[in-house]
């Protein structure tokens, strides 16, 4: 039995394949750990409460943290509202028009974010006359997030088993009742995952904000227009080219905070999805 012809060669091939797969996985882990290491080492000396109590002008980051969180929350609200509805439309109601929208959404995913920023500058900042502002910046981020939210909503809704929807129709439910009470409920974990990916992406964006939010050394004023907003990615991007060691440290700390925020969003998503499936 064990002396079957060619068995040794097949086993060797199997082990080689495993080895190659493992080696290449390790290769892609190297830059990841390197990034974490560099950011951690360079930001470590500056880690203190000052970050949370002082603004960027005084060596802290509180205005940038507050600005980032504010912009991301604002744009997420808009993107969830618009994206979930258009995803529902694409999955449940759309005909030929829907395939055009779908194509445009896919194209939008590929538009460089700097183009979105420039569009925001021309339309929101100049044409609408809002100036550098939270509103212009949040709308630019919304444009970045929208295709992700729309498409993941659509995909999640398409995965709802048809017998479940039929069960609802058979009880006399209309299409919209079925979407609201059955499909969205079933698709919720998928939609949530898509939303959180979009949130993470928007948290890491710089380009759409440079032209729309500008930057501010002060805490967000709360005004939606004519008031520049600070944000973390700007600190990372701009402060690293300043000729001061303290500015470099601020840039690294900003990166660290961004990474921690994205990490916690990811963990939060996993936790929520797991809990959802359990119930």
């Amino acid at each position: 039995m064990n002396s079957e012809k060619g068995l040794g060669a097949r086993k060797a091939k199997d082990w080689t394949m495993r080895g190659v797969a493992l080696a290449l996985t390790l290769v892609i882990l190297i830059p990841l750990f390197d990034i974490i290491y560099v950011v951690a080492v360079n930001s470590a000396p500056a880690l203190s409460l000052t970050i949370l109590t002082k603004t960027t002008a005084d060596g802290g980051l509180i205005n940038a943290i507050a600005g980032s969180v504010f912009l991301v929350c604002f744009s997420s609200l808009l993107a969830i509202l618009l994206g979930v509805f258009s995803g529902v439309y694409l999955a449940e109601f759309g005909g030929r028009f829907a395939s055009v929208v779908r194509l445009l959404a896919d194209v939008l995913t590929g538009v460089p974010s700097i183009v979105v920023g420039y569009f925001g500058f021309i339309v929101f900042v100049l044409d609408f006359g809002w100036g550098f502002s939270a509103l212009a910046a949040a709308l630019a981020l919304t444009i970045i997030m929208l295709p992700y939210v729309t498409r993941t909503t659509e995909f999640a809704l398409r995965k709802v088993p048809s017998d479940m929807k039929e069960g609802s129709f058979a009880l006399g439910a209309t299409r919209s009742t079925t979407v609201n009470r059955i499909s969205l409920r079933y698709a919720a974990p998928g939609i949530l995952t898509g939303v959180l990916i979009a949130v993470s992406i928007s948290l890491g964006e710089t380009a759409p904000l440079i032209y729309t939010a500008d930057f501010s050394n002060y805490l967000p004023s709360g005004a939606l227009t004519h008031s520049p907003v600070g944000y973390l990615t700007y600190v990372t991007w701009a402060y690293i080219s300043e000729p001061f060691a303290s500015a470099h440290q601020q840039a690294f700390v900003a990166s660290l905070i961004l990474m921690l925020l994205v990490l916690s969003i990811g963990l939060c998503a996993r936790f929520m999805v797991a809990r959802w499936w359990k119930s």
């Binding site: 479940m164 039929e166 129709f169 058979a170 009880l171 006399g172």
Partner: peptide, 14 residues
């Protein structure tokens, strides 16, 4: 459909 109920081949709990 309020007057004519249906039960499917495979149980389809919501």
């Amino acid at each position: 459909r309020r007057h004519v109920g249906m039960v499917f081949q495979k149980p389809n709990p919501f």
